[in-house]
Write a protein that binds this DNA or RNA. Structure first.
Lengths: 228, 228
DNA sequence: CGCGTGTCTCCTGCTGACGGTTGACAAACC
DNA sequence: GGTTTGTCAACCGTCAGCAGGAGACACGCG
């Protein structure tokens, strides 16, 4: 049997990556509550790995702003902070806008189909009130231009800050932000098909701005750490 | 004597942060050449710290794309890759544009003065062909809107990807990209003063686009690792 | 009873060491 | 001589342990 020569298809899993995903997901879905203290030893026991991969995972999470570390003292899950989420939102929106702009010239019919399919799954998940599936489909939809842009920096930034937004959506509203997003997605697809870069970029940005009104429902000082 | 109650003014320096800065600067200024192999043991000996802080520094550099790691095999300084630099450039430009847009409504006269002062230092450094000073002044100039935007995500992203651009400028051209940048900076200041958000944002983006023509002078496959 | 101080414990940051995997070299076979 | 395969050294990922500092508590003093 001739072995397929696809390179690096199965990459060995690093313990630190698994730890990163596990802790990140636990923060996003609320298992680890905002403001909660993260003890290295506890995480070690929970994940069944040593402190080194756990600490490397925490370091990555700190860059994203999901955890905060005071050197030598403690590590906590970041409180829900309006300004921090707003910051992550505007950066995320800018990245998606940029991805659409860079991807559009070379967007293939197959990729447009992939966006349509993802949007269909998104709509279906919303009908079923399946938050997990809806978020996954939404990620798939916006992931098409990101992948097509072939811009690794965009991907890196999005992987950093998207969890911050997802956490707010899941903890605070327990349902995906906009049902109107389905129509917005359709509009984005249409503009992409028409080759309207400015229009598609603007529509994408607008789509990610739907989070903003929800932000305003968060009291300014909610769950601020020490002073409150 | 009453002690000033400024909080956390002196933050204890972490070895990993020092290691990060040292390695990053060495890559940017070419001390560590593109494609060069990075041996943990060598870095340990050079920096005089243990492997852990060195590895944490390398992990951060990998996110920025300045080094590449094959798990279990080796770590190398990223070769000069047009696509990677182009990706970092477009993300950086988008971030600076966003920073100006968010900072403008609340930009004070003092901050405008700071931009003018930085631009003056920038022009002076260019006259003296002092690349280090020019880059520092340029950073200061663009740092004003970034700081004023109070958007921590923007700052994080810029700290990640700016070194990638600086490395290209220093290795490949040994002089700052655009002498015309002084005039562009003045234009940005004027538009900020006039409160023209769209104009200032566009001018900022245009300023960071001056890197693009230089990118085209890089052959597509320059310094790709194995074949060369 | 309130405040300041000393001690004690816990936790983080760092260190040094070990094992698994990977790419390379060389010997053996066709 | 070319190809295959066995062996090997090197290096990264991970582990357990140590030291310094910060916070908590209790004691003593005013």
């Amino acid at each position: 049997m001739p072995v397929p020569i696809s390179r690096g298809l199965v990459s060995r899993s690093l313990l630190r990556d698994n730890a990163y995903r596990a802790i990140r997901d636990a923060i996003v879905d609320g298992t680890l509550a905002p403001g909660e203290r993260l003890n290295d030893a506890d995480l070690v026991e929970w994940l069944g790995v040593s402190r080194t991969p756990v600490r490397e995972a925490l370091a990555r999470l700190e860059q994203a702003g999901l955890v905060q570390t005071k050197p030598g003292r403690h590590t906590i899950v970041s409180p829900l902070d309006v300004r921090a989420v707003r910051a992550a939102q505007s950066v995320t929106a800018a990245m998606h806008e940029l991805a659409v702009r860079e991807a559009l010239p070379g967007l293939s019919a197959a990729e447009l189909d992939a966006m349509r399919a993802a949007n269909a799954r998104f709509a279906d998940a919303l009908r079923r009130d399946d938050v997990d599936a809806a978020i996954a489909a939404d990620d798939d939809f916006h992931g098409v231009p990101v992948t097509a842009s072939a811009n690794h920096a965009i991907r890196t930034v999005l992987e950093q800050f998207t969890p911050v937004l997802r956490r707010l959506e899941r903890l605070r509203f327990s349902s995906l932000s906009g049902r109107g997003s389905v129509a917005q997605h359709e509009r984005i697809i249409a503009l992409c098909e028409a080759g309207d870069a400015d229009g598609a970029a603007a529509a994408t940005r607008a789509n990610w701005e739907t989070l903003v009104p929800l932000l305003d429902t968060l009291p300014d000082g909610e769950a601020t750490s020490s002073t409150g």
